Simulated scan of single mutants.
Amino acid sequence: MQRKLALLLTLTALVLALAACGGNKNDTASESPAGSPAEETASQEIVINATTWAFDKTEYDMPKDTPVKLTLNNTKGAHGIEIVGQGIEIRGNKSKVVTLPAGTYEIHCSIMCGSGHKQMISKLVVS
């Protein structure tokens, strides 16, 4: 009897743990799927290619106060980008339409990707 109860409790805990690991719908809600109205209003697209511990450019430029589609392309490894202090994060091979005021912002990898993770830093110059 105790074995059956222990098995039942273990299975219940497993089901709850798997349900908790389900996708976070809020994480992708602000990302623009292809063909969405937000994507259509973007004036240009900036593609950020991420590879093993590096972005393809040390600096990216975009116009101020203008919607721009930022696209993260993981060419090697699993990476994400965060624009520091702006609450903007893109994970995986996804896009997001963003509008920023003039300034210089730091972009860094937001997914721990290995020993060179801390070196994955670039600039976004908005003018």
Rank of each mutant, 00 (worst) to 15 (best):
R3M: 15
R3N: 13
L7T: 11
L8K: 13
L9E: 06
L9A: 09
T10L: 11
T10Q: 08
T10M: 15
T10H: 11
L11D: 02
L11Q: 06
T12N: 12
T12M: 15
A13H: 02
V15E: 11
L16I: 07
L16G: 12
L16K: 03
L16F: 12
L18H: 10
A19G: 10
A20Q: 09
A20C: 11
A20Y: 14
G23W: 14
G23F: 12
K25E: 14
K25S: 05
N26Y: 05
D27W: 08
T28M: 08
A29P: 04
S30P: 13
S32N: 14
A34I: 06
A34P: 01
A34Q: 08
A34E: 15
G35N: 03
S36G: 07
P37D: 01
P37V: 06
A38H: 04
A38Y: 10
A38G: 06
E40S: 15
E40F: 14
T41S: 10
T41Y: 02
A42H: 07
S43D: 06
S43A: 14
Q44W: 01
E45P: 02
I46K: 02
V47K: 03
I48V: 06
I48W: 00
N49L: 07
A50M: 03
T51W: 10
T51D: 09
T52A: 14
W53I: 06
A54Q: 09
F55G: 00
D56H: 07
D56A: 04
K57P: 00
K57C: 01
K57Y: 02
T58G: 13
E59T: 12
Y60M: 03
Y60D: 02
D61G: 08
D61P: 04
D61H: 12
M62F: 07
P63K: 00
P63A: 00
K64Y: 05
P67F: 02
V68H: 02
V68P: 05
K69M: 02
L70P: 04
L70C: 04
L70Q: 06
N73D: 11
N74E: 10
T75A: 14
K76E: 11
K76C: 11
V84F: 03
G85M: 01
G85K: 07
G87T: 04
I88L: 06
E89A: 15
E89K: 10
I90P: 03
I90K: 00
R91P: 09
G92N: 05
G92I: 08
G92K: 05
G92C: 08
G92Q: 07
G92M: 05
N93W: 07
K94P: 15
K94G: 11
S95K: 13
K96F: 11
V97F: 04
V98D: 10
T99H: 09
L100Q: 05
L100P: 11
G103T: 07
G103C: 02
T104C: 08
E106Y: 12
E106T: 11
E106A: 15
H108P: 06
C109A: 03
C109W: 01
C109F: 00
C109P: 04
S110L: 01
S110W: 00
S110P: 02
S110R: 00
M112S: 13
C113M: 03
G114D: 07
G114M: 08
S115R: 14
G116P: 00
G116R: 07
H117N: 13
K118T: 15
Q119H: 12
M120N: 10
M120V: 00
I121E: 10
I121V: 13
K123I: 09
L124F: 02
L124M: 09
L124K: 01
